[in-house]
């Protein structure tokens, strides 16, 4: 069987989402970002919202998200994506607006913007990738770094006396009257990916139905920063991350 026979349309079992372009990704092999990007691209396409969607990219590993998903984007200053999304949505209410942020961006430097955009009930989606570490800058401690976890700035493990506790920002945001949907997902298995896509779809639909702010947290790995193989990172995540950040809906109204 030669290659031309294999790539016949009737043999197709998987296709790259239409809204993912061909730019080579800078993400490390094994990183969760690629899968999450793919899910977002699929959901936007399936909702037929390509021409109405505006994404806001963060500072952090996903800073170049705008190079991969083929929609209009604004690149935010570190932590300010929810403020930027607020203005875009208020000024363009018919658009579908989402931010894509990491733990340092959303839960450290941008905590105020996160809390207040959610509390105002902005009709936006916040996609929150929590890998418990600063990946882009080389693996420093994040607000979500687990107790005892080793990073470049807590080389002897996170000491709560020195650094405080891992921040469960999604639980905090779920308390706010302005949020309608807060959920914790992951993309480490096929089943989890399927569930995560449903969660994203609901969040995006909420935003267009003016139900308020939706936050979808992805408990993720950073195998490079964690200094593990992708497989070991997934196992470590299941064992340690899920214990602190259990999956499932925190709020769904």
């Amino acid at each position: 069987m030669d290659i031309n026979e294999i790539i016949k349309p009737e043999n197709l079992v998987y296709d790259k989402p239409r809204l993912m372009n061909d730019n080579p990704m800078h993400y490390c092999p094994g990183c969760s970002h690629g899968v999450i990007h793919k899910l977002i691209a699929e959901v936007i396409d399936e909702m037929g919202m390509e021409e109405k969607t505006i994404g806001i990219a963060p500072v952090g590993c996903a800073v170049f998200a705008y190079n991969y998903i083929d929609i209009d984007w604004e690149e935010a200053a570190h932590g300010r994506a929810p403020a930027i999304a607020t203005a875009i949505k208020r000024l363009n209410p018919e658009k579908m607006v989402f931010t894509y942020q990491g733990d340092g961006d959303l839960a450290a430097i941008g905590t105020a913007e996160t809390i207040h955009a959610c509390n105002r009930g902005e009709n936006i989606v916040i996609v929150f990738v929590n890998n418990a570490i600063y990946g882009m800058t080389g693996g420093q401690m994040a607000p979500t770094t687990l107790e005892g976890m080793v990073t470049a700035t807590c080389p002897y493990g996170r000491d709560v006396e020195l650094n405080g506790y891992p921040l469960k920002i999604s639980n905090l945001v779920a308390q706010l009257d302005g949020t309608c949907y807060v959920t914790r997902q992951s993309v480490h298995t096929a089943a989890a990916v399927k569930k995560a896509k449903k969660a994203l779809r609901q969040a995006f639909e909420n935003s267009m139905n003016k139900k308020g702010a939706s936050l979808v947290e992805f408990v993720s790995t950073c195998n490079s920063g964690w200094k593990m193989s992708p497989d070991a990172a997934n196992k470590w995540m299941e064992e340690h991350m899920f214990a602190k950040y259990p999956l499932g809906d925190l709020k769904n109204v």
Binding site: I54, A76, A77, R80, A83, I84, T86, A87, I88, A112
Partner: peptide, 24 residues
């Protein structure tokens, strides 16, 4: 015209960045 009281000056100028990016 949209008028919004932001949570800080930092948020306000970033709202301006966001809105300006949409051509407003």
């Amino acid at each position: 015209m949209v008028v919004l009281q932001a949570e800080s000056e930092v948020a306000a100028i970033n709202m301006v960045y966001g809105g300006a990016g949409t051509g407003k």
